[in-house]
């Protein structure tokens, strides 16, 4: 218990220090790297708080995708922030004091941290999710069970949000340029460095294999469609960075990306409509296998995770290619 508190306090202190450093740093590349550190500390805290799935996602998203996107944008815009004028501080201070006051006021009646008798744990759904789910769905990772089945609609919404972000980036910075348009910059080519080329060549199959493992292992351990999708995307991003966008786009053509982006939500909603046609409610996976509802749930969850994986990978790759090819085709 003592070690837990010590580790927790240390991580929280690092977290706050990093947040303050981010807020004060005017060099934005440095602030972005600190942002990656901030996400890493957050992920560690998630592990400490028993949220391994969330930690996995935060590590993949915060340290990986967000950082890459921010760096890409900084390359396209300006990397140094102007001095914040004094007059801007006052409204911010007022807003923060008000919000902080409300939060401090609220904290007085919050259940103590880690209490086993808090309203969250005494609510009957705790039993439903932790114990009843073993009979209803029968997969050990309850996070996956809640995510894909009990609250499947939220997950559909989440996938739609990712899809929307993909549309937004396509509409704003345009589709990734055609391979022949993205001429590599002559003076700088990462693939010229033998170590980088060979290491990333070796890593590629493992990254993709790991993504597949994460995708299909989500029922038993931490992982699932979203994390797998981000890892897939990370693989393509690495390939694009090292070997050039033109080569990466030959591996994953634009048309395939566009279809994959829309395919995930379609499969997910289609699954919901199919369960309706089979006589159940929207997203009721029991009816997929009427004799063995548990098997139906397994099948449904697997389909859902796969749909998420493909679309997330496609959207993240599209977003990266869009930003990157905007830089190269300039």
């Amino acid at each position: 218990m003592m070690t837990f508190v010590l580790t927790n306090v240390t991580l929280l202190v690092i977290l706050i220090a990093t947040a303050i450093a981010i807020s004060r740093m005017r060099a934005l590349y440095e602030a972005t790297m600190l942002g990656a550190l901030f996400s890493l500390v957050t992920a560690s805290l998630f592990v400490l708080l028993d949220a391994v799935d969330v930690a996995f996602t935060e590590a993949a998203v915060g340290v990986g995708i967000s950082t890459v996107l921010l760096l890409g944008v900084l390359a396209l815009t300006r990397s140094r922030e102007a001095v914040t004028p004094r007059r801007r501080h006052l409204p911010a201070l007022i807003a923060v004091l008000l919000a902080g006051g409300a939060l401090g006021y609220a904290s007085q009646d919050l259940p103590a941290f880690g209490a086993a008798d808090s309203p969250v744990f005494s609510h009957p759904i705790t039993g439903t999710y932790l114990h009843q789910s073993q009979e209803d769905i029968g997969i050990p990772n309850t996070v996956t069970a809640v995510l894909a089945s009990y609250r499947g609609l939220d997950t559909l919404g989440e996938l739609v949000v990712v899809f929307t972000a993909g549309l937004a980036v396509l509409s704003l910075v345009g589709p990734p340029a055609r391979p022949e348009e993205t001429m590599p910059r002559a003076d700088f080519h990462l693939a010229d460095y033998r170590i980088i080329r060979i290491i990333s060549g070796i890593l590629m199959p493992f990254i993709l294999l790991f993504a597949l493992y994460v995708l299909f292992h989500g029922e038993y351990g931490p992982g699932g469609g979203f994390q797998a999708g981000v890892i897939f995307a990370a693989g393509f991003v690495l390939y694009g960075l090292v070997f050039g966008l033109d080569k990466a786009q030959r591996v994953v053509p634009r048309v395939a990306l566009r279809i994959l982006v829309s395919l995930g939500p379609l499969v997910f909603i289609g699954l919901g409509l199919a369960t309706m046609l089979l006589g159940g409610q929207f997203l009721d996976f029991d009816v997929l296998d009427p004799n063995h509802p548990e098997e139906g749930q397994h099948l449904g969850i697997l389909l859902v995770e796969t749909a998420i994986g493909f679309t997330v990978a496609a959207v993240m790759t599209t977003v990266f290619f869009s930003f990157a090819s905007r830089g190269v085709s300039r």
């Binding site: 969330v54 996602t57 996107l69 969250v120 309850t142 939220d154 869009s322």
Partner: peptide, 26 residues
């Protein structure tokens, strides 16, 4: 066990967050 529900919510919220970030950056 710790409660799975907040973890599920935050998985969703993280994804929403990165989606918003991508739109903002674009």
């Amino acid at each position: 066990y710790s409660h799975p529900l907040p973890q599920v919510l935050i998985l969703t919220a993280i994804v929403v967050g990165v989606a918003t970030l991508a739109v903002g950056l674009a």
